[in-house]
Design a protein around this nucleic acid. Structure first.
Lengths: 192, 192
DNA sequence: CATTTTTGTTTAGTATAATGAACAAAGGTA
DNA sequence: TACCTTTGTTCATTATACTAAACAAAAATG
């Protein structure tokens, strides 16, 4: 999501530059940005252009978001969600039980589920936002995964990864319960 | 990782603005950037300042990286890794078997493992890079998770999330095998 | 110590980002 | 048609990002 205050490139730049043991002079050569500019940016005396920041990022061999977004310090998390406190969504008609492992507010672009399919159970999903990916680990049973034109049948221990901005579905094609661990990774850009 | 060419903000801006059904005038009010500037940026006639781009991102209620990085189209993936092709790492002395579900080159900042702990098995990890997080789903058995000062004991069905830029460990404290699904989410900034 | 080298800051000049206002072009309504 | 409204572009001016060169302050070398 979008940050609260305008990015302070200065601190990030200095940190990254020091981390890589670069002097302003060599970074100036590497990036094509004048040493003077680097100095002024690090001391937040100017309001650099995106082109300039991009060139610096190239010189540092980092993503441009690293220079802009990185806040330096961050809070640390340690949360436990007990089995009996985990939200369960029962879709009896489809023969699917979904446990939402990760609270929605936990990570902005990651969600995790534990899905149990009764024999014949089927989970159909509409297309998600562009670039969204799903990662499945089959824990038990036998399933068929469909995503767009692709289709595959998998058993316990198999791992499937696919982009899911097309209609996709998971079906239990065995004669016992199938359990699947599912990770959905959204693209931040599309969360509003 | 870092892009090849300097960001063309123009296309992204126009796309996002149209998507939200905004006119240049109202976006100018929302963002505090003049309508004229918006026009010039959209037609790539200028080289905007990060402060300006940030204000526009605020007005659009999107992340600044969305305006800069977004490439629009993307390739779609559908890969299956069969159980017998999955790499297994045996650490017999610690009593841990790790199956690397996600090939390393698959997602730049996500890794997934299936870990089996024999009774007494223990997995100690050095601190990862800042902001790295781990998400555990206990599939069977009873484990103790330690991260920095935090410690907890969990059983099948529980879910644990924690930042792991401090030393951390997972130990099987039950008398049967424990199986844990682990998701590690790195921070792009630190991948080089 | 004096002297050179290395690293970062400040200054002066130029290129250009950003603005408000005027302008143009396309609908909408009578 | 004429007339207004809405949306985007162009113009003239101001503010400032960016550069090269001069400067300062250490650190290294003799």
């Amino acid at each position: 999501m979008s940050q609260r205050r305008p990015p302070r490139v200065g601190n990030n730049l200095q940190r990254l530059r020091k981390e890589k043991g670069l002097t302003m002079d060599v970074l100036a050569q590497l990036s094509g940005v004048s040493k003077a500019m680097l100095s002024q940016i690090e001391s937040d005396k100017v309001n650099p252009t995106v082109a300039t920041v991009w060139k610096i990022a190239q010189g540092l061999a980092v993503d441009i978001g690293t220079l802009l977004g990185g806040s330096g310090d961050h809070p640390r998390r340690f949360t436990v969600t007990r089995s009996d406190r985990i939200n369960t969504l029962d879709m009896d008609e489809e023969g699917v039980h979904i446990k939402t492992l990760s609270p929605l507010d936990m990570v902005e672009d990651l969600e995790m589920y534990l899905c149990t399919f009764t024999p014949g159970g089927n989970l159909n999903s509409s297309p998600h936002f562009p670039k969204t990916e799903e990662f499945l680990t089959v824990l038990s049973g036998k399933i068929r995964v469909t995503a767009g034109d692709n289709i595959t049948e998998c058993e316990a221990g198999d791992f499937i990864a696919y982009h899911c901005d097309l209609p996709h579905s998971i079906a239990n094609i065995g004669d016992s319960d199938a359990v699947v661990h599912m990770v959905v990774r959204f693209n931040k850009r599309n969360l509003l």
